[in-house]
Write a protein that binds this DNA or RNA. Structure first.
Lengths: 246, 246
DNA sequence: CGCAAATTTGAGAGTCGTCAAACATAGTGG
DNA sequence: CCACTATGTTTGACGACTCTCAAATTTGCG
C-alpha cells in the first residue's frame, strides 16, 4: 500500500506520526499528479563516467537532482584535504538541496549514472503552489537526518570490520544491487569509495573482505561482485564488542 | 539582526536560500507572536538531578521539549547495550520530535536542567494554524541534519585526541558555558558523557585532557572546569593527519 | 596486448580499548 | 561536622586494532 494514494489530509498527518516508511525514495512520497509536475520541470542527465562532478560544496545551488540509475557519492573534504563520503545516493534519492543558497557538500557520480535535474527555483515555486509538497520535503530531510544518526552510531561504536559488515548489510536491502536469487551483490564502488565512507583506509577494507571470506560469510567473485553466504551472520557481527577482551 | 523581525514572506524565502544562521536556537526562529503562542502551551519543568530520563526511545511521543537551562544528552543504545550520545542539547534547542509517532532516541538530563515541555498535539495544531511555524520546523530539522553531518566528519576522520579538541572548540562557542574573560570552560559533563559522545573510552578522554595540558593548550582546573590557553591551537589540531607517519 | 589504476598482501609501528588499581570528589547518614 | 560510601577520574600496563609505507598482483580499458 503506497503512501502516494493517500488523500491530502492523511498525508499531512503521516508526517512524524504516521507509519514508518522503509525509505523515503522520492516516488514513494509523491502523488501521481505531483510526480507529473516534477517531471515537467526535470531534465534527464546522463553521466557516462564515474568521477564526474555534479556540484561542488560552497558553490551556488541552482539545481536539485534525483538519482534514476547508478550511485552518487555525497562527500565533504576536511581542511586536511581528506575526503569523507557522507552518503551514497541510490536510485530514487533526492540530493542537492541548497543550504543558505549554496551546496553544503560535493556530489560525484560514483559510476555511470542517470539522473533527473530540476531548477531549484522552479521546484520551490511548485512547492508554494502545493503546500503538501513542502511537507514531503520535510519528510525527506527528516529521513536523511535519521540516516545520518545511524552513521554516527556505526562510526562511533564499531570497528572497521563491523562497519564493513554493516555497509554490506545495508546494501543487501537494495534490490537494484543485490540479486536475492543468486545472493550476488554487485556494487559499482571502489575500495576507496567504501573506505572513505567507513572512515578507514582502502587496505583495511580489502583485509575486511578477506576476513569475511575466511569466516565463510561471503565469497569474493571480483572486486565489485560479492556472493553473500550468510546474511544473518553479517548482521550479528554488528552486535559484538568492538574489541576482543584480553 | 534577528530573523524574528522579518515579515512572513521573507521568512519563507530564508529557508534554504537565506543567510546562514549561526544556530537554529528556537527563539531565533520565532517571531514574538509565535513565541507567545509557544509559551501558552508550554509548561516549565525542572530536573534537579542529572541522569533523569526525559523520554525513552521507542515509547509514544506525546511531548516536545525545549531546553531553558542545562544540558540534555540525546542518546541511543546499540544492540550490544553500549550507549552513543548523538547530541548534547543546549539552552534554546528543541528536542523530542516524534518519528512515526514514537521517540527515535532517549533523552536524559546530563545535569540539573530546566526545560519547557509542550504537548505535541497542541504544537501540531498550532502549526496548522500558522504555516510559517511549520517552515521553522523544517529549518530546525535541516540544522540538526547538518550538525549530524559534521559529527560524521569528526568520527570518520579524526583520532580521539583530535575529536576531543573539536569537542572543546565547539563548546567554546557557547557563552553559557565558556567565560571569555577568564577563558574558563565549565562543562557539567562527566568523562563518560564525553567519551560516549566522541565514540571512545573515558580513560582515553582523560588521557586526551592530560596531553592537551602537557602541550600547553589548556589547564585542568577540575574535572568540570578547564582553563583554555590556546583556542587557535585547539582548532589547528583538527587539520592534522590522524596518525603520525613513520 | 600494454598501460594505468585498483586491489591485495606484507611488515612495522602508532593508537587506543580493556583490565586494574590508586586517587579524588560529592553526597549521605551518624 | 566528619567518617563513609558511591561515583567519577586518573594513571599504568598490555595487547588488539589498523594506519602507513611498500611492493606484488590483478583488473579494466583503449
Amino acid at each position: 500500500m503506497s503512501a502516494a494514494k493517500q488523500k491530502l489530509p492523511e498525508m499531512r498527518a503521516r508526517l512524524f506520526d504516521g507509519r514508518r516508511e522503509a525509505s523515503a525514495r522520492l516516488e514513494n512520497l509523491l502523488s501521481r499528479k505531483q510526480q507529473e509536475a516534477f517531471r515537467s520541470i526535470a531534465t534527464v542527465f546522463e553521466y557516462r563516467r564515474g568521477g564526474t562532478v555534479l556540484f561542488t560544496e560552497g558553490t551556488d545551488a541552482s539545481f536539485v537532482y534525483s538519482v534514476a540509475e547508478g550511485i552518487v557519492r555525497v562527500c565533504r573534504h576536511s581542511d586536511g584535504g581528506r575526503r569523507q563520503v557522507l552518503a551514497f545516493m541510490l536510485p530514487g534519492d533526492l540530493l542537492g538541496l541548497p543550504d543558505s543558497g549554496t551546496y553544503a557538500n560535493t556530489a560525484e557520480a560514483a559510476c555511470p549514472c542517470t539522473l533527473y535535474r530540476m531548477p531549484w527555483a522552479q521546484l520551490r515555486e511548485l512547492m508554494q503552489r502545493e503546500p503538501a509538497l513542502q511537507l514531503n520535503l520535510l519528510e525527506k530531510v527528516a529521513y536523511d537526518f535519521r540516516e545520518a544518526q545511524r552513521r554516527i552510531m556505526v562510526l562511533g561504536q564499531q570497528n572497521t570490520y563491523q562497519r564493513l559488515a554493516s555497509f554490506l548489510a545495508d546494501f543487501i536491502q537494495q534490490p537494484a544491487f543485490f540479486d536475492a536469487d543468486t545472493a550476488t551483490l554487485t556494487l559499482p564502488l571502489t575500495r576507496f569509495d567504501i573506505a572513505d565512507y567507513l572512515g578507514t583506509a582502502p587496505e583495511t577494507v580489502a583485509r575486511g573482505f578477506l576476513r569475511l571470506e575466511q569466516e565463510g560469510l561471503l565469497r569474493r567473485v571480483g572486486p565489485r561482485v560479492t556472493e553473500i553466504r550468510d546474511i544473518e551472520g553479517l548482521r550479528k557481527l554488528q552486535h559484538r564488542k568492538r574489541r576482543a577482551a584480553r
